[in-house]
Design a protein around this nucleic acid. Structure first.
Length: 596
RNA sequence: GGUCCCGUAGCUCAACUGGAUAGAGCAUCUGCCUUCUAAGCCGACGGUUUUGGGUUCGAGUCCCAACGGGACUACCA
């Protein structure tokens, strides 16, 4: 909430005392922006106050309005519609606020840099499969939330946990040994993650073949699946890995490195970075001691068979296994250990944000409860940034059915389409090839990121590869385009005119005052997005502001405006929109071009 | 069976967290390039917010029920 609204709340509270001798806490006064079709800038909802005023809504509003206009010189007049008190704020106030905003470096995104330290985990891929569309939503969300939290004044640590161990990794390794013939990313020209993914698929294919073979000789399906030689081999390899067998470790290290290099290429392409990586091969044993000490504390209980469980029935959850009877870790064990390790690695860590799909909601509820039971400070502040699946028209993506939308391919496709469009529109004449390539990526990736981020995270969303992602309408490129137009005006004005925000009423018209108010709401949007971990708030704000700007721009010439005062006023509008849109899009991880 | 998420225009999404006449884009139809970049702008069409109750000055938003869609509910990771 901004200062003006706080002041209005306060004033209404005082007015209630003065007019009705009623005590109304300031924070309970509802202040909102006045709807477009009504006269005024701020609206106070007086319905809730009528009980105290013992007067009709209209009468109450009239009295409060009169008091307020009398007391606060920023209020020029008021109007009452039903139970809504619409206050008109002076143009001078808006002009001054705009001036202020323009003087403020990093307006809205450089707030008190002393807030708590927050960890954001995202991406967290397996090392046996390349990244796909689902990862894209995850990565863009996690990265954007990190940016937003930073802008809101937090210290942010971006991490991913890499699932680099387990039977699935061994499957790729087994297949590579059998069918790889020494293939490497260098010899094949394939990205490392693609190469390894290929052998994971090859394993599955050969394995199924073996199962089929066995079944044709009369073996039952279950038996055939269980006894296939390839699976046995993978299991043996997992054991060898756990025992630290040199040859196995060497292959594992090599193949994982291929994958990391492949992922790194993709991250770099996205403009995404991490501050710290966690590997499951390092963390998977960490939780055991914590769980055992939890038993001593009485937080968990051990059954006769030796397995350890936590009873969360008081929290509406079931009993949950934390450690197997043979003392080996389950997924939960590892997550407990990792979480605790992170608190140790980053002293003063306030909370962790886990960007993970909504199918794991139950898992994280349990995890956070367990951490609470272990007495971790602030465990209840941890947050599962849960997001819905990206669905294809045919339904869910299934790697086995080949309906997976590959991340690299999709990104290339986006850049290519942007290029085709730019060519068609004759936008890139005079650019070098590398400038063109860069621009097409900026636009194509911008479209993709915006598409995935504009939807509320909790909602599952639809992606139709055939319809592909738009570049016109409510899209990233629309916002980029209008940004470029604003930038272009400002560049042309540079040197000729000293930017000065005029205070006289005549310099502004009604649509401009509306636009200024929208622009001034930017800091509140950052706060709201940070509070709810929701980049879609930023995306929608950017679109709304851009749309208003674009509309205004159409019939408000800036540089050609003969009246100097009006010209200054319009330049100021270009400046604030250009800046807000750019910082908004930056928070979404979207680059802005300087021409398009 | 139980828990959680979702249901808004033909399609994809909004709606400032309970406020006024539910807004955008796409698609369809239509107008605007001697004027700061037309990836733009104006206009038209499009809604019983899945259904039925309830709470109150006021409900797309909160509560209950039904219907429909999805996820989870493994000594798998």
């Amino acid at each position: 909430m901004n200062q003006l609204d706080l002041d209005i709340q306060d004033a209404i509270s005082k007015a209630c005392k003065a007019c009705f001798e009623a005590d109304v806490p300031a924070e309970q006064v509802q202040v909102q922006r006045t709807r477009k079709d009504f006269d005024g800038d701020r609206t106070v909802v007086v319905f809730p106050l009528t009980r105290l005023s013992k007067k009709s809504p209209e009468e109450t509003a009239e009295m409060l309005g009169a008091w307020l206009v009398d007391q606060d010189e920023r209020m020029t007049h008021f109007q009452v519609v039903k139970g809504f008190l619409n206050l008109s704020v002076s143009t001078t106030y808006w002009a001054e606020s705009l001036d202020n905003a323009l003087q403020t470096e990093g307006f809205g995104t450089a707030l008190t840099n002393s807030k708590s330290r927050v960890m954001v985990e995202f991406s967290s891929p397996n090392t046996n499969k390349p990244l796909h569309l689902g990862h894209l939503r995850n990565i863009f969300l996690g990265f954007s939330v990190s940016q937003i939290l930073k802008a809101a004044g937090h210290q942010v640590v971006k991490v991913q946990i890499i699932n680099d161990r387990g039977i699935h990794i061994c499957k790729s390794m087994v297949a590579w040994k059998h069918f790889g013939e020494g293939a490497t990313p260098e010899t094949t020209g394939l990205k490392g993650d693609k190469l390894v993914g290929k052998y994971y698929v090859a394993f599955d294919k050969a394995y199924k073949e073996q199962v089929k073979q066995a079944m044709s000789t009369g073996t039952s399906e279950a038996e055939a699946k269980e006894s296939a030689p390839l699976l046995a081999e993978a299991r043996t390899m997992l054991q060898q890995w756990e025992q630290g067998d040199a040859e196995t470790m060497a292959l594992w290290t090599t193949m994982n490195q291929w994958v990391y290099d492949g992922f790194e290429t993709t991250y770099a392409e996205m403009g995404v970075t991490f501050d710290q990586l966690y590997y499951e091969s390092n963390t998977y044993l960490l939780g055991r001691d914590e769980v055992l000490s939890g038993v001593k504390q009485g937080a968990f209980n051990q059954r006769e068979d030796g397995s350890i469980w936590v009873d969360l029935s008081d929290a509406g959850l079931d009993e949950k296994l934390l450690l197997r009877k043979d003392g080996t870790a389950v997924y939960m064990t590892q997550d407990i250990g990792t979480a605790i390790q992170r608190y140790k690695d980053f002293p003063g860590l306030d909370r962790q944000i886990y960007t993970v799909g909504n199918e794991q909601e139950y898992h994280f509820k349990v995890l956070f409860k367990v951490l609470e039971k272990l007495g971790i400070q602030g465990a209840d502040r941890n947050f599962h940034l849960s997001y819905g699946m990206v669905e294809l028209p045919e339904g869910k993506m299934k790697s086995r059915e080949g309906t997976v939308v590959d991340a690299d391919e999709l990104m290339q496709e986006m850049a290519r389409t942007a290029g085709e469009m730019a060519q068609e529109l004759g936008k890139t004449d005079g650019l070098t090839d590398s400038e063109k390539e860069q621009l097409h990526k900026t636009i194509g990736y911008g479209a993709l990121k915006y598409f995935l981020l504009k939807v509320s995270p909790t909602k599952s969303m639809m992606f139709d590869p055939k319809a592909s992602i738009d570049f016109i309408g409510n899209t990233g490129p629309f916002i980029q385009f209008n940004y470029v137009r604003a930038l272009s005006v400002l560049k042309k004005a540079e040197g000729q005119i000293v930017l000065r925000v005029p205070k006289e009423d005549s310099a502004w018209d009604a649509t401009e005052l509306q636009l200024i108010q929208s622009a001034l709401e930017w800091p509140e949007m950052v706060q709201a997005a940070a509070k709810t971990y929701d980049p879609s708030i930023i995306a929608n704000y950017c679109y709304d502001l851009t749309k208003s700007y674009s509309r205004w721009y159409q019939d408000h010439p800036v540089l050609k405006e003969p009246d100097a005062s009006k010209r200054e006023a319009r330049l100021a509008i270009c400046a604030i929109c250009e800046r807000n849109i750019k910082s908004g899009m930056t928070l979404l991880g979207i680059q802005m071009p300087d021409r398009m």
